[in-house]
Computed example of a mutant assay.
Amino acid sequence: MHTKSDLRFAAEGIKFTTSTPRLGLPAEYGLSWILPRIVGLTHAADILYTGRIVYSEELARMGFLNGLFPRENFMDEVYKVARMVATQVSPASVTSAKRQMYADLLHLAPRRSIDGSKDLIGHFMRQGDFKEGIAAYNEGRPPRFGDPAIGEKVAASGVS
């Protein structure tokens, strides 16, 4: 069981496990750090202590999955989400939100998160993606955001 993806989808009836407790090994690859943050301490303890097989339906109820789809159209559903992200959201906004989310998760300082987001909002409101997002909304059309590589540079510019 690896949790390195920001968005996680599974088909119905899929088995997941971390077999390390049954092999005499510790929790692998930072799973003991991230899993409690995703599914809560009780569910994480169950998974990490028992090494039992957990089906995708149970992981969805725990909040581990963002989507649970029928096997026959699984990829269609995942591609639908991917197309939406690729065509309707600002790459710079997503990059910044990801950095905010993980920094806030690590530091656990709500006031810092709020203050930092206010600074970022002010910065982003002066950027082209925000102007394009507002124009697209007002015109009832899909947005045409800038180059994702530029978005990464903006998000990494030290403003976050």
Rank of each mutant, 00 (worst) to 15 (best):
V94L: 13
G63S: 12
D104R: 04
T42S: 11
N73Y: 05
H43C: 06
D115Q: 09
G63M: 02
R111N: 08
F130A: 14
A97L: 03
T50C: 14
M101P: 03
S117N: 10
Q88R: 12
G51F: 01
V85D: 12
A44C: 13
L120M: 11
R83M: 08
S96W: 00
G128N: 07
A82M: 01
E77Y: 00
R71N: 10
V85E: 09
D119I: 04
E57H: 10
M101D: 10
F64T: 01
T50D: 06
A92V: 07
V85P: 08
E132I: 14
G122E: 09
H43V: 12
I53M: 05
N66A: 05
R83E: 13
K131W: 05
P70H: 01
T42F: 02
R52Q: 07
D119G: 13
T42I: 02
N73T: 15
R83I: 04
L59C: 05
V54M: 14
F124G: 12
V94C: 13
A97I: 00
A45Y: 03
A86N: 11
K131E: 08
R61M: 10
H107K: 07
V78H: 00
H123E: 12
G116S: 11
P110L: 06
L59D: 02
F130C: 14
R112M: 06
Y49L: 15
D119F: 00
D104Y: 01
S117F: 01
F69M: 10
Q127L: 15
L106M: 06
Y79G: 15
K118M: 13
T95E: 13
E72M: 11
G133Y: 02
A97Y: 03
M101G: 14
F69S: 13
S96E: 08
V89A: 07
R99W: 01
M125N: 05
F74W: 02
D46I: 04
Y49A: 15
V85C: 13
T42R: 12
K80P: 03
R71W: 05
T42M: 06
H123Q: 08
M101Q: 10
G116K: 02
A60F: 04
G122F: 00
G128T: 13
Y55R: 05
S117R: 01
G133Q: 03
S90I: 03
R99V: 00
A97T: 02
L59F: 03
T95C: 06
K80F: 00
A109S: 14
T95I: 02
I53F: 00
I114L: 13
Y55S: 04
M125F: 04
N66T: 09
L120D: 09
V81E: 11
N66E: 07
R71V: 10
E77M: 08
R71K: 08
S56W: 01
E58G: 10
T87A: 12
F74S: 08
F124M: 14
L106S: 07
A45F: 01
D104K: 04
S56Y: 02
R52E: 09
M84A: 13
G122W: 00
L68H: 04
G122S: 06
